[in-house]
Design a protein around this nucleic acid. Structure first.
Lengths: 171, 171
DNA sequence: TATTGTTATACTCTATAACTATA
DNA sequence: TATAGTTATAGAGTATAACAATA
Protein backbone atom coordinates (compact mmCIF):
# COMPACT_ATOMS: atom_id res chain seq x y z
CA UNK A 1 0.00 0.00 0.00
CA UNK A 2 1.03 3.57 -0.54
CA UNK A 3 0.47 6.67 1.52
CA UNK A 4 -2.74 7.98 -0.01
CA UNK A 5 -5.60 7.79 2.47
CA UNK A 6 -7.81 5.39 0.58
CA UNK A 7 -11.23 6.60 1.62
CA UNK A 8 -10.39 10.16 0.84
CA UNK A 9 -10.07 9.51 -2.87
CA UNK A 10 -12.47 6.64 -3.09
CA UNK A 11 -15.33 8.58 -4.53
CA UNK A 12 -13.34 11.08 -6.49
CA UNK A 13 -13.64 9.36 -9.86
CA UNK A 14 -16.92 8.78 -11.65
CA UNK A 15 -17.87 5.18 -12.35
CA UNK A 16 -20.79 2.78 -12.30
CA UNK A 17 -21.06 2.83 -8.51
CA UNK A 18 -21.52 6.58 -8.65
CA UNK A 19 -25.05 6.00 -9.83
CA UNK A 20 -26.23 4.86 -6.38
CA UNK A 21 -27.77 7.42 -4.11
CA UNK A 22 -27.91 7.37 -0.33
CA UNK A 23 -31.27 5.63 -0.40
CA UNK A 24 -29.88 2.57 -2.09
CA UNK A 25 -29.13 -0.58 -0.25
CA UNK A 26 -25.74 -1.85 0.64
CA UNK A 27 -25.99 -5.00 -1.45
CA UNK A 28 -26.56 -3.01 -4.59
CA UNK A 29 -23.55 -0.85 -3.83
CA UNK A 30 -21.50 -3.95 -3.23
CA UNK A 31 -22.51 -5.36 -6.57
CA UNK A 32 -21.76 -2.11 -8.39
CA UNK A 33 -18.38 -1.90 -6.74
CA UNK A 34 -17.65 -5.45 -7.82
CA UNK A 35 -18.81 -4.64 -11.34
CA UNK A 36 -16.71 -1.49 -11.51
CA UNK A 37 -13.55 -3.33 -10.50
CA UNK A 38 -14.17 -6.08 -13.00
CA UNK A 39 -15.03 -3.72 -15.83
CA UNK A 40 -11.95 -1.60 -15.28
CA UNK A 41 -9.57 -4.52 -15.13
CA UNK A 42 -11.26 -6.50 -17.86
CA UNK A 43 -11.28 -3.70 -20.37
CA UNK A 44 -7.62 -3.05 -19.71
CA UNK A 45 -6.90 -6.73 -20.29
CA UNK A 46 -8.90 -6.74 -23.51
CA UNK A 47 -6.97 -3.74 -24.78
CA UNK A 48 -3.65 -5.33 -23.92
CA UNK A 49 -4.51 -8.65 -25.49
CA UNK A 50 -5.58 -6.91 -28.66
CA UNK A 51 -2.73 -4.45 -28.92
CA UNK A 52 0.12 -6.62 -27.70
CA UNK A 53 -0.97 -10.04 -28.87
CA UNK A 54 -3.61 -9.51 -31.53
CA UNK A 55 -6.14 -11.65 -29.71
CA UNK A 56 -9.29 -11.42 -27.61
CA UNK A 57 -10.32 -12.48 -24.13
CA UNK A 58 -12.53 -15.40 -25.19
CA UNK A 59 -9.77 -16.72 -27.43
CA UNK A 60 -7.27 -16.34 -24.62
CA UNK A 61 -9.64 -18.11 -22.24
CA UNK A 62 -10.18 -20.99 -24.59
CA UNK A 63 -6.43 -21.45 -25.02
CA UNK A 64 -5.99 -21.23 -21.26
CA UNK A 65 -8.46 -24.05 -20.76
CA UNK A 66 -6.57 -26.18 -23.27
CA UNK A 67 -3.21 -25.37 -21.71
CA UNK A 68 -4.44 -27.00 -18.52
CA UNK A 69 -5.69 -30.06 -20.36
CA UNK A 70 -2.78 -31.47 -22.38
CA UNK A 71 -4.97 -34.45 -23.25
CA UNK A 72 -7.37 -32.05 -24.95
CA UNK A 73 -11.00 -31.14 -24.37
CA UNK A 74 -14.29 -31.78 -26.08
CA UNK A 75 -16.22 -28.83 -27.48
CA UNK A 76 -19.00 -29.42 -24.98
CA UNK A 77 -16.53 -29.36 -22.10
CA UNK A 78 -15.17 -26.06 -23.33
CA UNK A 79 -18.70 -24.76 -23.56
CA UNK A 80 -19.39 -25.64 -19.93
CA UNK A 81 -16.13 -24.24 -18.63
CA UNK A 82 -16.38 -21.00 -20.54
CA UNK A 83 -20.05 -20.57 -19.75
CA UNK A 84 -21.10 -19.83 -23.31
CA UNK A 85 -23.21 -21.76 -25.78
CA UNK A 86 -21.98 -24.46 -28.13
CA UNK A 87 -22.15 -22.50 -31.34
CA UNK A 88 -19.85 -19.84 -30.01
CA UNK A 89 -17.18 -22.38 -29.15
CA UNK A 90 -17.35 -23.59 -32.73
CA UNK A 91 -16.72 -20.06 -33.96
CA UNK A 92 -13.79 -19.34 -31.70
CA UNK A 93 -12.27 -22.75 -32.39
CA UNK A 94 -12.59 -22.12 -36.14
CA UNK A 95 -10.52 -18.95 -35.83
CA UNK A 96 -7.84 -20.55 -33.70
CA UNK A 97 -7.65 -23.59 -35.98
CA UNK A 98 -7.27 -21.40 -39.04
CA UNK A 99 -4.29 -19.73 -37.39
CA UNK A 100 -2.77 -23.08 -36.52
CA UNK A 101 -3.03 -22.58 -32.77
CA UNK A 102 -5.37 -25.52 -32.06
CA UNK A 103 -6.38 -28.76 -33.81
CA UNK A 104 -9.57 -30.77 -33.85
CA UNK A 105 -9.10 -34.55 -33.57
CA UNK A 106 -11.92 -36.98 -34.14
CA UNK A 107 -12.45 -39.40 -31.28
CA UNK A 108 -12.90 -43.07 -32.15
CA UNK A 109 -15.33 -44.06 -29.41
CA UNK A 110 -17.90 -41.36 -30.16
CA UNK A 111 -18.01 -40.23 -33.72
CA UNK A 112 -20.00 -37.11 -32.91
CA UNK A 113 -17.26 -35.63 -30.73
CA UNK A 114 -13.93 -34.06 -31.40
CA UNK A 115 -11.06 -33.36 -29.08
CA UNK A 116 -9.46 -29.93 -29.28
CA UNK A 117 -5.80 -29.51 -28.42
CA UNK A 118 -3.22 -26.76 -28.52
CA UNK A 119 -0.61 -27.19 -31.22
CA UNK A 120 3.05 -26.57 -30.31
CA UNK A 121 2.70 -23.20 -31.99
CA UNK A 122 -0.42 -22.56 -29.93
CA UNK A 123 1.37 -23.51 -26.75
CA UNK A 124 4.22 -21.14 -27.49
CA UNK A 125 1.87 -18.31 -28.37
CA UNK A 126 -0.17 -18.91 -25.24
CA UNK A 127 2.86 -18.99 -22.97
CA UNK A 128 3.97 -15.63 -24.23
CA UNK A 129 0.55 -14.10 -23.68
CA UNK A 130 0.02 -15.75 -20.33
CA UNK A 131 3.37 -14.59 -18.99
CA UNK A 132 2.76 -10.96 -19.79
CA UNK A 133 -0.81 -11.26 -18.62
CA UNK A 134 0.21 -12.66 -15.26
CA UNK A 135 2.99 -10.13 -14.83
CA UNK A 136 0.48 -7.40 -15.36
CA UNK A 137 -1.98 -8.90 -12.86
CA UNK A 138 0.83 -9.26 -10.35
CA UNK A 139 1.77 -5.66 -10.79
CA UNK A 140 -1.78 -4.45 -10.35
CA UNK A 141 -2.55 -6.52 -7.28
CA UNK A 142 0.79 -5.73 -5.68
CA UNK A 143 -0.72 -2.34 -4.90
CA UNK A 144 -3.48 -3.96 -2.87
CA UNK A 145 -2.74 -4.88 0.73
CA UNK A 146 -2.23 -8.51 1.72
CA UNK A 147 -5.12 -8.25 4.07
CA UNK A 148 -7.53 -7.11 1.37
CA UNK A 149 -6.35 -9.74 -1.05
CA UNK A 150 -6.87 -12.52 1.45
CA UNK A 151 -10.25 -11.15 2.46
CA UNK A 152 -11.37 -10.86 -1.14
CA UNK A 153 -10.25 -14.34 -2.02
CA UNK A 154 -12.18 -15.87 0.87
CA UNK A 155 -15.30 -13.80 0.45
CA UNK A 156 -15.40 -14.20 -3.31
CA UNK A 157 -15.13 -17.94 -2.79
CA UNK A 158 -18.36 -17.81 -0.89
CA UNK A 159 -20.03 -15.57 -3.45
CA UNK A 160 -18.89 -17.78 -6.28
CA UNK A 161 -20.42 -20.80 -4.62
CA UNK A 162 -23.70 -18.98 -4.13
CA UNK A 163 -23.71 -17.76 -7.72
CA UNK A 164 -22.84 -21.13 -9.20
CA UNK A 165 -25.48 -22.79 -7.03
CA UNK A 166 -28.30 -20.38 -7.72
CA UNK A 167 -27.81 -18.94 -11.20
CA UNK A 168 -28.85 -20.84 -14.28
CA UNK A 169 -25.84 -21.63 -16.39
CA UNK A 170 -26.19 -21.10 -20.10
CA UNK A 171 -25.54 -23.74 -22.75
CA UNK B 1 -25.40 -19.02 5.02
CA UNK B 2 -26.72 -22.53 4.61
CA UNK B 3 -25.39 -25.88 5.78
CA UNK B 4 -23.32 -26.90 2.81
CA UNK B 5 -19.62 -26.91 3.66
CA UNK B 6 -18.46 -24.22 1.31
CA UNK B 7 -14.99 -25.39 0.51
CA UNK B 8 -16.14 -28.90 -0.23
CA UNK B 9 -18.17 -27.81 -3.23
CA UNK B 10 -16.09 -24.84 -4.17
CA UNK B 11 -14.23 -26.51 -6.96
CA UNK B 12 -16.95 -28.86 -8.06
CA UNK B 13 -18.19 -26.76 -10.93
CA UNK B 14 -16.07 -25.88 -13.93
CA UNK B 15 -15.48 -22.19 -14.59
CA UNK B 16 -12.81 -19.72 -15.60
CA UNK B 17 -10.85 -20.16 -12.41
CA UNK B 18 -10.58 -23.88 -13.14
CA UNK B 19 -7.96 -23.05 -15.72
CA UNK B 20 -5.34 -22.27 -13.10
CA UNK B 21 -2.97 -25.03 -12.09
CA UNK B 22 -1.09 -25.37 -8.81
CA UNK B 23 1.91 -23.55 -10.27
CA UNK B 24 -0.07 -20.37 -10.77
CA UNK B 25 0.21 -17.48 -8.43
CA UNK B 26 -2.37 -16.44 -5.96
CA UNK B 27 -3.03 -13.06 -7.53
CA UNK B 28 -4.00 -14.66 -10.80
CA UNK B 29 -6.40 -17.00 -9.01
CA UNK B 30 -7.87 -14.05 -7.17
CA UNK B 31 -8.46 -12.23 -10.42
CA UNK B 32 -10.04 -15.26 -12.06
CA UNK B 33 -12.30 -15.77 -9.08
CA UNK B 34 -13.36 -12.14 -9.28
CA UNK B 35 -13.95 -12.49 -13.00
CA UNK B 36 -15.97 -15.67 -12.56
CA UNK B 37 -18.27 -14.05 -10.01
CA UNK B 38 -18.80 -11.02 -12.17
CA UNK B 39 -19.39 -12.99 -15.33
CA UNK B 40 -21.93 -15.26 -13.67
CA UNK B 41 -23.90 -12.45 -12.12
CA UNK B 42 -23.61 -10.12 -15.07
CA UNK B 43 -24.81 -12.61 -17.62
CA UNK B 44 -27.78 -13.42 -15.42
CA UNK B 45 -28.58 -9.72 -15.18
CA UNK B 46 -28.29 -9.30 -18.94
CA UNK B 47 -30.67 -12.18 -19.50
CA UNK B 48 -33.18 -10.79 -17.03
CA UNK B 49 -33.03 -7.29 -18.47
CA UNK B 50 -33.58 -8.64 -21.94
CA UNK B 51 -36.31 -11.12 -21.11
CA UNK B 52 -38.22 -9.16 -18.50
CA UNK B 53 -37.69 -5.59 -19.66
CA UNK B 54 -36.57 -5.79 -23.29
CA UNK B 55 -33.43 -3.81 -22.60
CA UNK B 56 -29.68 -4.21 -22.21
CA UNK B 57 -27.13 -3.53 -19.50
CA UNK B 58 -25.55 -0.46 -21.13
CA UNK B 59 -28.98 1.05 -21.71
CA UNK B 60 -29.93 0.32 -18.12
CA UNK B 61 -26.66 1.85 -16.93
CA UNK B 62 -27.18 4.99 -18.97
CA UNK B 63 -30.67 5.43 -17.55
CA UNK B 64 -29.34 4.79 -14.05
CA UNK B 65 -26.83 7.58 -14.49
CA UNK B 66 -29.57 9.95 -15.60
CA UNK B 67 -31.87 8.92 -12.76
CA UNK B 68 -29.26 10.22 -10.35
CA UNK B 69 -28.87 13.46 -12.26
CA UNK B 70 -32.32 15.06 -12.54
CA UNK B 71 -30.68 18.14 -14.02
CA UNK B 72 -29.41 15.97 -16.88
CA UNK B 73 -25.96 15.05 -18.13
CA UNK B 74 -23.80 15.91 -21.11
CA UNK B 75 -22.83 13.15 -23.51
CA UNK B 76 -19.20 13.51 -22.53
CA UNK B 77 -20.08 13.13 -18.86
CA UNK B 78 -21.97 9.96 -19.64
CA UNK B 79 -19.00 8.74 -21.60
CA UNK B 80 -16.69 9.23 -18.63
CA UNK B 81 -19.03 7.67 -16.12
CA UNK B 82 -19.80 4.66 -18.23
CA UNK B 83 -16.21 4.20 -19.27
CA UNK B 84 -16.93 3.84 -22.97
CA UNK B 85 -16.12 6.05 -25.93
CA UNK B 86 -18.19 8.95 -27.16
CA UNK B 87 -19.56 7.35 -30.28
CA UNK B 88 -21.10 4.53 -28.31
CA UNK B 89 -22.99 6.93 -26.06
CA UNK B 90 -24.43 8.51 -29.18
CA UNK B 91 -25.69 5.12 -30.34
CA UNK B 92 -27.29 4.14 -27.05
CA UNK B 93 -28.83 7.58 -26.62
CA UNK B 94 -30.29 7.35 -30.13
CA UNK B 95 -32.09 4.14 -29.23
CA UNK B 96 -33.44 5.47 -25.97
CA UNK B 97 -34.56 8.72 -27.57
CA UNK B 98 -36.38 6.85 -30.32
CA UNK B 99 -38.33 4.99 -27.65
CA UNK B 100 -39.15 8.22 -25.85
CA UNK B 101 -37.21 7.32 -22.71
CA UNK B 102 -34.71 10.21 -22.87
CA UNK B 103 -34.49 13.62 -24.55
CA UNK B 104 -31.61 15.67 -25.86
CA UNK B 105 -31.75 19.37 -25.00
CA UNK B 106 -29.40 21.89 -26.56
CA UNK B 107 -27.48 23.98 -24.06
CA UNK B 108 -27.32 27.72 -24.63
CA UNK B 109 -23.86 28.41 -23.22
CA UNK B 110 -22.04 25.83 -25.37
CA UNK B 111 -23.66 25.15 -28.67
CA UNK B 112 -21.67 21.96 -29.24
CA UNK B 113 -23.14 20.23 -26.21
CA UNK B 114 -26.47 18.72 -25.41
CA UNK B 115 -27.99 17.76 -22.10
CA UNK B 116 -29.63 14.34 -21.87
CA UNK B 117 -32.49 13.79 -19.46
CA UNK B 118 -34.92 11.03 -18.62
CA UNK B 119 -38.48 11.69 -19.76
CA UNK B 120 -41.32 10.94 -17.32
CA UNK B 121 -41.92 7.77 -19.31
CA UNK B 122 -38.22 6.95 -19.00
CA UNK B 123 -38.33 7.54 -15.28
CA UNK B 124 -41.28 5.22 -14.87
CA UNK B 125 -39.68 2.54 -17.01
CA UNK B 126 -36.42 2.82 -15.12
CA UNK B 127 -38.06 2.59 -11.72
CA UNK B 128 -39.75 -0.64 -12.68
CA UNK B 129 -36.51 -2.17 -13.94
CA UNK B 130 -34.44 -0.90 -11.04
CA UNK B 131 -36.83 -2.27 -8.45
CA UNK B 132 -36.80 -5.76 -9.83
CA UNK B 133 -33.07 -5.54 -10.40
CA UNK B 134 -32.41 -4.57 -6.83
CA UNK B 135 -34.76 -7.19 -5.46
CA UNK B 136 -32.86 -9.78 -7.38
CA UNK B 137 -29.48 -8.54 -6.14
CA UNK B 138 -30.83 -8.53 -2.59
CA UNK B 139 -31.96 -12.09 -2.96
CA UNK B 140 -28.64 -13.27 -4.36
CA UNK B 141 -26.49 -11.55 -1.76
CA UNK B 142 -28.75 -12.61 1.08
CA UNK B 143 -27.15 -16.02 0.69
CA UNK B 144 -23.71 -14.59 1.40
CA UNK B 145 -22.69 -14.12 5.03
CA UNK B 146 -22.57 -10.66 6.54
CA UNK B 147 -18.92 -11.11 7.27
CA UNK B 148 -18.07 -11.86 3.64
CA UNK B 149 -20.16 -8.99 2.35
CA UNK B 150 -18.45 -6.53 4.66
CA UNK B 151 -15.04 -7.91 3.82
CA UNK B 152 -15.72 -7.72 0.10
CA UNK B 153 -17.01 -4.20 0.26
CA UNK B 154 -13.92 -2.98 2.08
CA UNK B 155 -11.40 -4.89 0.04
CA UNK B 156 -13.03 -4.04 -3.27
CA UNK B 157 -12.94 -0.42 -2.24
CA UNK B 158 -9.19 -0.66 -2.06
CA UNK B 159 -8.94 -2.54 -5.34
CA UNK B 160 -11.19 -0.03 -7.06
CA UNK B 161 -8.99 2.80 -5.95
CA UNK B 162 -5.90 1.04 -7.24
CA UNK B 163 -7.58 0.24 -10.54
CA UNK B 164 -8.93 3.73 -11.05
CA UNK B 165 -5.56 5.21 -10.18
CA UNK B 166 -3.45 2.97 -12.37
CA UNK B 167 -5.52 1.92 -15.36
CA UNK B 168 -5.95 4.15 -18.37
CA UNK B 169 -9.57 5.09 -18.78
CA UNK B 170 -10.99 4.99 -22.29
CA UNK B 171 -12.73 7.87 -24.01
C1' DT C 1 -5.70 24.08 -31.40
C1' DA C 2 -8.73 21.43 -28.48
C1' DT C 3 -13.27 19.81 -27.44
C1' DT C 4 -18.21 18.09 -28.29
C1' DG C 5 -20.68 15.20 -30.54
C1' DT C 6 -21.89 12.54 -34.84
C1' DT C 7 -21.20 9.25 -38.40
C1' DA C 8 -19.32 5.25 -40.59
C1' DT C 9 -16.83 1.01 -40.40
C1' DA C 10 -15.43 -3.35 -39.14
C1' DC C 11 -15.11 -6.84 -35.90
C1' DT C 12 -16.15 -9.82 -32.00
C1' DC C 13 -19.22 -11.77 -29.01
C1' DT C 14 -23.71 -13.49 -27.93
C1' DA C 15 -28.21 -16.04 -27.85
C1' DT C 16 -31.31 -18.52 -30.47
C1' DA C 17 -32.78 -21.92 -33.36
C1' DA C 18 -32.71 -25.23 -37.00
C1' DC C 19 -30.04 -28.87 -38.60
C1' DT C 20 -26.91 -33.41 -39.03
C1' DA C 21 -25.03 -37.28 -37.37
C1' DT C 22 -24.56 -40.00 -34.14
C1' DA C 23 -25.66 -42.41 -29.50
C1' DT D 1 -35.10 -39.53 -27.47
C1' DA D 2 -31.06 -37.22 -26.19
C1' DT D 3 -26.48 -35.54 -27.17
C1' DA D 4 -22.32 -33.39 -29.98
C1' DG D 5 -21.34 -30.27 -32.91
C1' DT D 6 -22.32 -27.12 -36.95
C1' DT D 7 -24.49 -23.52 -39.40
C1' DA D 8 -27.14 -19.38 -39.97
C1' DT D 9 -29.09 -15.30 -38.22
C1' DA D 10 -29.68 -11.13 -36.03
C1' DG D 11 -28.38 -7.93 -32.69
C1' DA D 12 -25.42 -5.57 -29.41
C1' DG D 13 -21.15 -3.65 -27.90
C1' DT D 14 -16.74 -2.00 -28.92
C1' DA D 15 -12.71 0.65 -30.78
C1' DT D 16 -11.18 3.47 -34.27
C1' DA D 17 -11.05 7.15 -37.22
C1' DA D 18 -12.71 10.90 -39.95
C1' DC D 19 -15.62 14.76 -39.65
C1' DA D 20 -18.40 19.26 -38.51
C1' DA D 21 -19.32 22.72 -35.44
C1' DT D 22 -17.86 25.32 -31.87
C1' DA D 23 -14.87 26.89 -28.14
Amino acid sequence: MNDIPANAMLNAMPDLETRTGPEDHQNLRLWLRLLTCCTLIESDIRTRLRQEHGTTLPRFDLMAQLERAPQGMKMSELSRHMMVTNGNITGITDQLEKEGLVVRNKVATDRRSSIIKLTPKGRRAFKKMADSHEAWIQELFSHVSDKSRKAMFEALGELKLVAQTRLTPRG
